[in-house]
Amino acid sequence: MANTPSAKKAARKIARRADINRTRRGRMRTFVRKVEEAIASGDAAAAAEALRAAQPEMMRAAQKGVVPKNTASRKVSRLAARVKALSA
């Protein structure tokens, strides 16, 4: 347990950031899941729309440091490829 005032403050800040990051990560996963479900259903239009909604959310998570930038880019790229293959 933190003993000094600065360590106590640091613990509070870390807990607050962890909550925010957990929310952002969960939000990103929800958007990705919607794309996955649309792909699984075979609906190309819904998948494309879900991807358009998910992409900025994923990149925002990367910008905020929740996930690495390359990870978000890779996920967007792979989802886009799957959506494109679905419509072709």
Rank of each mutant, 00 (worst) to 15 (best):
residue 44 A to K: 11
residue 80 A to N: 00
residue 53 A to W: 10
residue 76 V to N: 05
residue 23 T to C: 09
residue 28 M to P: 00
residue 83 V to L: 09
residue 30 T to Q: 15
residue 52 R to C: 09
residue 48 A to V: 12
residue 60 R to Y: 05
residue 74 R to K: 03
residue 87 S to K: 15
residue 79 L to V: 04
residue 21 N to Y: 12
residue 33 R to Y: 10
residue 80 A to E: 00
residue 28 M to W: 06
residue 40 A to N: 09
residue 5 P to I: 01
residue 88 A to I: 09
residue 38 A to Q: 03
residue 38 A to C: 06
residue 28 M to K: 05
residue 64 K to F: 08
residue 11 A to Q: 11
residue 11 A to R: 11
residue 17 R to E: 04
residue 42 G to N: 02
residue 41 S to A: 15
residue 58 M to P: 00
residue 31 F to G: 01
residue 29 R to Q: 09
residue 45 A to I: 12
residue 33 R to T: 15
residue 79 L to G: 00
residue 51 L to M: 09
residue 73 S to P: 00
residue 45 A to P: 06
residue 83 V to E: 01
residue 35 V to R: 00
residue 82 R to I: 10
residue 7 A to F: 14
residue 25 R to D: 01
residue 5 P to W: 04
residue 69 K to H: 10
residue 45 A to K: 15
residue 35 V to G: 00
residue 32 V to C: 02
residue 2 A to N: 08
residue 11 A to P: 01
residue 45 A to Q: 15
residue 23 T to Y: 14
residue 2 A to K: 15
residue 41 S to Y: 11
residue 20 I to W: 14
residue 52 R to P: 01
residue 1 M to L: 12
residue 13 K to Q: 14
residue 41 S to K: 15
residue 37 E to F: 05
residue 37 E to C: 00
residue 54 A to M: 13
residue 32 V to G: 01
residue 49 E to P: 02
residue 83 V to F: 10
residue 18 A to R: 07
residue 9 K to G: 01
residue 86 L to D: 03
residue 14 I to M: 13
residue 64 K to V: 07
residue 31 F to Q: 07
residue 18 A to K: 05
residue 53 A to D: 14
residue 49 E to C: 06
residue 1 M to I: 09
residue 67 V to W: 08
residue 20 I to H: 12
residue 2 A to P: 07
residue 33 R to K: 15
residue 56 P to R: 04
residue 43 D to Y: 03
residue 36 E to H: 10
residue 16 R to K: 14
residue 77 S to Q: 12
residue 56 P to K: 04
residue 68 P to V: 02
residue 21 N to G: 02
residue 11 A to V: 10
residue 66 V to R: 06
residue 73 S to C: 02
residue 81 A to M: 03
residue 52 R to W: 06
residue 54 A to Y: 09
residue 80 A to K: 01
residue 40 A to E: 04
residue 28 M to A: 09
residue 20 I to A: 11
residue 69 K to R: 14
residue 80 A to T: 03
residue 81 A to W: 02
residue 63 Q to Y: 08
residue 69 K to D: 05
residue 41 S to T: 15
residue 29 R to I: 13
residue 13 K to Y: 06
residue 55 Q to D: 07
residue 53 A to R: 15
residue 86 L to S: 06
residue 72 A to C: 05
residue 46 A to D: 04
residue 51 L to P: 01
residue 73 S to L: 11
residue 34 K to P: 01
residue 59 M to F: 07
residue 34 K to H: 12
residue 5 P to N: 01
residue 72 A to S: 03
residue 72 A to E: 01
residue 23 T to A: 14
residue 57 E to T: 10
residue 28 M to I: 09
residue 62 A to H: 08
residue 11 A to F: 13
residue 31 F to I: 03
residue 13 K to C: 03
residue 70 N to S: 09
residue 3 N to Q: 14
residue 79 L to M: 04
residue 24 R to S: 03
residue 78 R to C: 08
residue 55 Q to E: 13
residue 71 T to L: 08
residue 68 P to Q: 07
residue 87 S to C: 08
residue 75 K to G: 06
residue 31 F to T: 08
residue 86 L to H: 11
residue 65 G to E: 02
residue 60 R to C: 05
residue 50 A to W: 01
residue 88 A to W: 06
residue 30 T to H: 15
residue 7 A to G: 11
residue 32 V to D: 00
